[in-house]
Design a protein around this nucleic acid. Structure first.
Lengths: 231, 231
DNA sequence: CAGCGGATAATTTGATCATATTCTGGTGAA
DNA sequence: TTCACCAGAATATGATCAAATTATCCGCTG
């Protein structure tokens, strides 16, 4: 039984050995983050179990994680759903991001290398393409990855975690709003921000991100407000 | 009226309706929050399963939740443990709380009723008693409940969630620090804060809480710094 | 006679456990 | 030191039990 070569035989596939609950978690997370699960839409454990072709136990664990992160909500009875945000909730999120994102951007500017800047620029270019093509899903995903990348560059693991968790909360609403308004007049201060980063001007980069965040979130707030009235 | 007694054991337990995984979660959360699980200490699922006298499935779910909240850390291999904070991590937490706690306090001051103030005052009185008795565990728990109460009064569910999550991260370190320094010279600006709240001076209340937070967290930072060197 | 309300039955969903399988880390021998 | 084996832990499945929602039916009233 030649088992010595096992460590080398895995080189074809980088990480095929991720646990099922981790894979389920990532799938569900993406579903929530990019609005494929609409806010208020109820899901059942068994339903997801079938939909994703997995056992219940991994699905249960993934759902627990997402509930803990605020991405899902335990709806009292026996349903979990993506939370419906009130206008007040949006205000909270705006307040939090207005403070978190600029700080992380400042730190990222101080630490970013040339390669990092090139990566960010590439992401932003792809983002522009998605916008011009009217590719909503692509826009949402790339916009997230752009900001996520900034968080990672800031080398502040806890704050990055918090900021990442906030995305999980307003992601679904973002999708709803963009679905209504199209991808044309979306805020994109990324160009200003990147220019400031290249110049090493952390303060200007932070200011640009702040405007980007506020513009985007205000659109969400204004678009959400009538929803609360609709009921 | 067939009021048949279906369960014989339910009359003794007030809330047997809570699922096991929820109970396990609360127990573990308290263990982490108040430092009964020391930072760095590894725990196994099976170990906890025996220790708490429960099956593995509920324990697994509880652990997933705590990992998602940053209360526990998946240590690569097959151990989960309470995260060891670096001095940088503490700085992040100070930065976050310095911003979150005053804001929530401002909102709480604007919304607190007379009863709320009485409750907070009662909590603070108990807290003083715990300090004077050298009751470390009591201090930690009451201090947490005092701040938690403020968060709830702020009526900002998302930000309160975030703030609560931060406690889970520095709670274990707080225990370590207080264990070393005793309960005597602990910061307690609660009196100033309560006075400001009674006067309806939200700004002064926020300022007092900010000092309380910074003082406490700075002690943690200074006490943690040599720990990183110890290795 | 038709429509409605309440109670009960049935189906669906969730929670837990026992068990099989896989994987990791350590240990002992060559 | 290295390799093979072993012990133990974690993951994942299926079955079982409990609870709740939905569906059905019966009797009652207008």
């Amino acid at each position: 039984m030649p088992k010595a070569a096992q460590k080398f035989s895995t080189n074809t596939i980088p990480e095929p050995r991720l646990p099922a609950h981790e894979l389920i978690y990532r799938q569900l997370r993406a579903l929530v983050l990019f609005g494929d699960l609409a806010p208020g839409q109820a899901v059942t454990i068994q339903g997801l179990s079938e939909r994703l072709g997995a056992g219940m136990t991994p699905v249960r664990e993934a759902i627990r994680r997402l509930i803990a992160e605020g991405a899902l909500e335990f709806q009292g009875n026996r349903r979990v759903s993506v939370p419906l945000l009130s206008a007040d909730n949006i205000s909270e999120l705006i307040y939090a991001r207005q403070w978190l994102d600029p700080y992380l951007t400042t730190r990222a500017t101080e630490r970013a290398t040339g390669d990092d800047l090139a990566d960010l620029t590439a992401l932003d270019t792809e983002l522009d393409r998605a916008i011009s093509h009217g590719d909503l899903r692509g826009y949402l995903e790339l916009n997230y990855r752009f900001h996520k990348r900034l968080y990672d560059l800031a080398e502040a693991s806890i704050l990055a975690d918090v900021a990442d968790g906030l995305w999980l909360r307003f992601g679904p609403s973002l999708r709803v709003v963009c679905g209504r308004m199209g991808t044309q007049n979306l805020p994109d201060k990324h160009k200003d921000m990147l220019a400031a980063m290249r110049a090493g001007d952390a303060e200007a980069a932070a200011r640009a991100i702040r405007e980007d965040v506020v513009q985007g979130m205000e659109q969400v707030r204004q678009s959400i407000a009538p929803q609360a009235h609709a009921h």
